[in-house]
Structure formats: structure tokens, C-alpha cells
């Protein structure tokens, strides 16, 4: 654990990506280590979602290098995309159960739903839930078995004040146990968070 804590889990070198004739970012070089929390900021359309998709291997059209120090990233990855991955025809529990089976996660689904404040809604079809509640179903996976890398696209969207606080605590405790957390949002978890800012085709590590 102490050994791996200091080596970089993720190395980006001169990463560049263009889309629809526009350079989203270029010359992105950074290293992220286990136990760090990275916040990615930037205006709408700055390329935050695309960057995360490159990191998790969903987007392959880029220049430069994106390398994980994990042989099989998928085993250790928890990725929540821009769309939360919730089907409206299924209940909260059914959605969560499928996500866990697919991702090889185990744990007590009910207490995870409790942690995101959805206890009592587990049998309600997601169609009847609000946008924030749907996102919470996906977020419940953060309270299930641990993965070493979390990549979260706008986890704070449509989450109320109480939810924000408990999500903050969850990210901090995960980082404390050696998880690398990378997320996009304008919300800062706490002062120690490192920040990457995308703007005008440039990417810079702000703190």
C-alpha cells in the first residue's frame, strides 16, 4: 500500500483531442496518484466529458498518451457517465442490481440505497423519480464494494444540499483508503483537491 501510494496510477502525456473541427484540449500532461481527488473544471463544451471518456477507454480518438498503471483497468474502475445509466422502466433496486452484476460489485444494496436517501423508493420505477433521485441510484454504487479508481462525470448535478455533504464525505473517505477519484463539477470537495482546468483548447493543472 505504501509503495503504490506514491507511484502514479494515471499518466497523461501531451494528450490532445479535437472534435468537430475544434481543438478541445492539447498538451495535457499530468500524473494522478492513488488517494488523490482530482476536480476537472471548464465551461460547457470545454471537453470535460470527452476527457473522462478517454480516461476510461470509451473514446479512442486522441493524440498523445493516456496510460494506467493498472493491468486491467476495467476490474478496478467505477465509472459514472454523463447520463447516469438508469432505465426508467426498472425500479431503483433493479437498476442497481444490474449495474452491480455487470460491474462485478457486491454488497448490501439496501444499505447503499439508504446511504443515498432512497430507502423507501427501492420498488418505485425510476420513471417516477426526479432527476436527482435517478442520479442517486447510480451514486449508490459508491457505497458498495471498493474499486481503486473512480471516474465520475458531474456527480453533483441535481443533488440537494444534504446529498452534497454525504457525497463529499464519501469521496474523502474513499480517497483516504487509497482510491483515486477523478470527477467533473464546479463543486470543490475540500481544500486539498487538485484541479485541472480546461479552457480555450488549453488544459492546465491549477492546483
Amino acid at each position: 500500500m505504501t509503495e503504490t501510494a506514491n507511484t502514479a496510477l494515471l499518466t497523461l502525456a501531451s494528450l490532445a483531442c479535437e472534435r468537430d473541427d475544434r481543438v478541445l484540449f492539447s498538451g495535457l500532461t499530468m500524473q494522478a496518484r492513488a488517494g488523490e481527488i482530482w476536480q476537472i473544471t471548464g465551461a460547457n463544451g470545454a471537453g470535460k466529458t470527452t476527457l473522462l471518456r478517454i480516461l476510461v477507454g470509451l473514446h479512442g480518438f486522441y493524440e498523445g498518451r493516456c496510460q494506467w498503471a493498472i493491468p486491467r483497468l476495467q476490474e478496478e474502475l467505477l465509472y459514472l457517465g454523463h447520463q447516469p445509466g438508469i432505465r426508467e422502466e426498472l425500479s431503483a433496486e433493479e437498476n442497481l442490481r444490474f449495474a452491480c452484476a455487470l460491474n462485478g460489485q457486491a454488497g448490501d444494496l439496501m444499505s447503499a440505497l439508504q446511504a443515498v436517501g432512497l430507502r423507501g423508493f427501492e420498488d418505485v420505477p425510476a420513471a417516477h423519480l426526479s432527476a436527482g433521485q435517478k442520479r442517486r441510484i447510480a451514486l449508490a454504487r459508491l457505497w458498495l464494494s471498493r474499486k481503486r479508481v473512480w471516474v465520475l462525470d458531474e456527480p453533483y448535478t441535481a443533488i440537494d444540499q444534504h446529498g452534497v455533504e454525504s457525497l463529499d464525505a464519501c469521496l474523502q473517505s474513499a480517497a483516504g483508503q487509497g482510491t483515486l477519484v477523478i470527477y467533473t463539477s464546479h463543486h470543490r470537495v475540500d481544500g486539498r483537491v487538485r484541479r485541472l482546468h480546461l479552457a480555450g483548447g488549453q488544459a492546465e493543472v491549477v492546483s
Partner: peptide, 13 residues
């Protein structure tokens, strides 16, 4: 549209 496909492609299977 709901993002499940991305989950499917990033899953460890």
C-alpha cells in the same frame, strides 16, 4: 440514451 451502453463497455466483462 440513458448511458447504460457506456456502463456495458466499461464493465470488467
Amino acid at each position: 440514451e440513458s448511458g447504460v451502453l457506456d456502463q456495458l463497455l466499461t464493465a470488467p466483462v
